[in-house]
């Protein structure tokens, strides 16, 4: 029986009872007591709104971006399918650039510390986030990770996202650029197959070009597809393991870094 109005509704089913607010007139009632829902008297009404499904993430992303701007931190969000070579790219980048500016890495993987260990082995600072079931990093997680890691002023922060060409495309982390890494052991039509990601990215790296003689990957076709999805995407072809054309990437990174430091100093 309902303890408020004495009706026979036991309210045993979930969703049948609603919290009662402001029941101070009755000494035996607390605000946690429940009363059956009066379907007959409660009328449905419509509420118009315009709220983005990513609004919560975007609020955190904006907060992160402000922090990065205030502290002169240049942030890249690296995305790719698993095995495209994001970690190797970062390891080789740190080896070359670690004496020019401080570098830190946030590693996102569903499980293990392996990637953070590889970064630390180069002398770089790294924090591993294990996302568990989740298929992408979000801005809130990055906010707490960067506080934990302690990001230096005028530094480079690389965020290596979970290997996944779908989900991370939607989640802004506050980065300056999304960098999509595509290796030549994958299909050259990936920019069309996973258009959301190539649309969201500003930079595309075609990795493992040293393997081109052994695989059926048409670089020109891949570039044409990427430009079709995103006409303003900046493309760099390289091999992270063999060092082929790696200078173009480190040069781009250093000049981007200099711009950030310069505007931070203003």
């Amino acid at each position: 029986m309902c303890g408020i109005c004495g009706c026979g509704d036991s309210g045993g089913q979930s969703g049948k009872f609603v919290p009662i607010k402001n029941m101070s007139f009755s000494p035996v009632m607390s605000s946690f007591q429940y009363h059956h829902r009066e379907d007959s008297v409660e009328k449905s009404r419509l509420i118009q709104m315009e709220v983005d499904l990513l609004s919560k993430n975007n609020v955190y992303a904006t907060k992160n971006r402000h922090y990065f701007q205030e502290h002169g931190v240049f942030v890249l969000n690296l995305v790719s399918s698993p095995g495209a070579g994001k970690t190797t790219l970062l390891v080789e980048t740190i080896k070359i650039l670690k004496n020019f500016f401080p570098i830190a890495v946030i590693e996102g993987d569903q499980q293990t510390q392996h990637d953070a260990d590889r970064i630390r082995a180069t002398g770089g600072r790294a924090l591993q986030i294990n996302t568990g079931r989740a298929c992408h990093l979000d801005a809130q997680g990055i906010g707490s990770a960067m506080m934990q890691l302690g990001i230096e002023n005028n530094s480079f922060l690389a965020i290596e996202n979970v290997g996944n060409l779908v989900c991370p495309s939607a989640f802004d982390l506050g980065e300056a650029h999304k960098v999509v890494v595509l290796s030549v052991t994958e299909g050259d039509d990936k920019p069309l197959k996973y258009a959301d990601m190539f649309y969201a990215a500003d930079v595309m790296i075609i990795n493992k070009i040293d393997l081109l003689p052994y695989v059926d990957f048409d670089v020109a076709r891949c570039i044409a597809f990427a430009l079709q999805v995103n006409p303003s995407i900046h493309i760099i072809s390289l091999s992270a393991t063999k060092g082929d054309n790696f200078g173009e990437w480190t040069h781009w990174l250093r000049s981007s870094m200099e711009k950030v430091i310069k505007s931070h100093a203003l």
């Binding site: 409660e42 449905s44 009404r45 419509l46 509420i47 118009q48 709104m49 983005d52 499904l53």
Partner: peptide
């Protein structure tokens, strides 16, 4: 986006 809710 969420544009409308029907509630009671």
């Amino acid at each position: 986006k969420i544009t409308e809710l029907k509630v009671r």
